[in-house]
């Protein structure tokens, strides 16, 4: 039996629902990873030693262990201590924090690379250290790391398939469910791959837009 895509339209509604979930989870975790990345970076660089330590532990967990294990921990593990999260929320937190740690590394480097004169000029105007970071230093650092963060976000999109194992019906799991009904793995995995590719293109387009907007301000 060869490839036959004629049955794909019959199941397109299930697949498209999966696409919607994948986009939703990717966007939400991307935002969390971005804001979390800035937060972790500022903590790592500017907070007292005692505050840094718990965050270093979080960083180690999210960098040093498999994402799959992290998702199991958040979804199945936390239930034991009374935190029962819906699967998609657990997925967003897991993906978001995992990539926040990677984004934080990028942002820390970029913050340190901002010219010292920027902080001085801001302090001279009367801004506090925190105000100077928020208004002057961090925005420049973030502008500088948009391209590498964009790469992380593409990786995040691909890794969002992992949340299928905790039962979120995103694109990969939706394809699997359709395959379970039709016994047509090749066709539907290819369809899923095509949708991932399209989402990927959209993300690259958004990234280019943002890069062009900030290009003038450097």
């Amino acid at each position: 039996m060869g490839l036959d895509f004629s049955i794909v339209p019959d199941y397109l509604d299930i697949i498209l629902l999966g696409v919607a979930w994948t986009i939703g989870i990717t966007v939400a975790s991307a935002l969390l990873s971005f804001v979390g990345g800035i937060f972790f970076a500022v903590i790592a660089l500017y907070s007292p030693w005692i505050i840094r330590q718990p965050f270093r532990l979080i960083e180690w967990v999210f960098m040093g262990t498999p994402l799959l294990l992290q998702l199991f921990l958040i979804y199945f593990g936390l239930v034991q201590i009374g935190i029962d999260l819906p699967a998609f929320v657990a997925g967003i937190i897991g993906l978001g924090l995992h990539f926040a740690v990677y984004n934080s590394e990028l942002i820390q480097t970029a913050i340190l690379a901002v010219d010292k004169g920027q902080m001085e000029a801001a302090r001279t105007l009367g801004l506090s250290r925190g105000e100077a970071l928020r208004k002057v230093v961090v925005p420049q650092a973030v502008n500088a790391v948009i391209p590498p963060i964009g790469n992380n976000m593409i990786a995040l999109l691909k890794d969002s398939a992992l949340v299928s194992v905790i039962g979120v019906s995103e694109l990969t799991l939706s394809a699997q469910r359709v395959i379970g009904k039709t016994y047509r793995p090749f066709e539907f995995y290819l369809v899923a791959a095509a949708f991932y590719y399209v989402i990927n293109l959209c993300m690259e387009w958004v990234q280019r837009k943002i890069e062009r907007r900030i290009a003038v301000s450097r």
Partner: peptide
Amino acid sequence: HFNLFPHM
């Protein structure tokens, strides 16, 4: 070196 804020 001026130290203007380049992102503004």
